[in-house]
Amino acid sequence: MRDVLLTVVRGLGFGSVYALLAVSFVIIYKSSKVVSFAQPALMLAGAVLVSYLAGPVGFYLAVPLAAIAIAMLGWGLERTTIRPMIGRPVFVVAIITLGLDIAIRVVVNVFIGPDVRNVGDPWGLSTVDVLGLPVQERYIAMAVVLLVVGAGLFAFFRYSRYGLAMRASSLDQETALVQGVPVGSMTALAWAMAAGIAAVAGAFVGAGGGVDQSTWVIALKALPAIIIGGLDSIGGAVVGGLLVGLVESFFATYQGEYLPFLGQNFSLVSPYVLLLVVLLVRPYGLFGTREVERV
């Protein structure tokens, strides 16, 4: 029982980070109808920026500062490399984001160096006693940050003028334009928000273990998460991210014992098994819209 609960906690902890990353993919998808493969690099850049800022200003201030800086980078990327591609096939834009990802990582790697960089988080691997269970503090922090960012996004998209304008732009560009909504700026805003959220996720990916040049791979776990949740649903991305975290965590704990014939480290591919199962039952994901492709 104790093992099960600890497995769940770990799954929800990492799942929260995957959920944040998945949300960042979905925000871009909703505004540009493209999956941005630059998110891993932006996540890594955020984590590395936090690792440099945490010393002078402390982790808690470093995270929002890095988020703002990386958001500005996201805005700039959209304006300079994505905007001019309007009207090109989605495939072309996706390839451009892949190029951006590589370019950004080349620069960021210089700042990481060959070793693991500590992000300066206050938790490390220390635990706190919750109802008799030794729960790692960083998992609690990950879940809290997902709650805070999620609640903020919910309120933003539901009640704020710009949130509504962003949703309107993603539903019907021409109609949004005749309401006086600057649709192009809404797209840039989406890229900025997605970059900022990826940066926050990066800081928490690094919590406990630090970051190195290969940490970007973790962002790819958001891909099964968004497909499970449905590409155009933010709530779905959160659920998908948490599911991926849980499945991965359960395979990590129990697969060696119960399914040893699957070999070692099967937990790494387990999200894709989950993905397959979900898509067999629901081709548009758990929360996706049937007509994701709108004309």
């Binding site: 003028r161 509504l164 309107a168 539903l171 949004a176 005749v178 309401q179």
Partner: peptide
Amino acid sequence: SQVLEGRRVFGEFSVEENLRVGAHTRP
């Protein structure tokens, strides 16, 4: 201000959300 052919309401928005989008330039 223009009303496009075919009305083009935001179907998944509530009536009031539709109106709020219309107020974008005049908050």
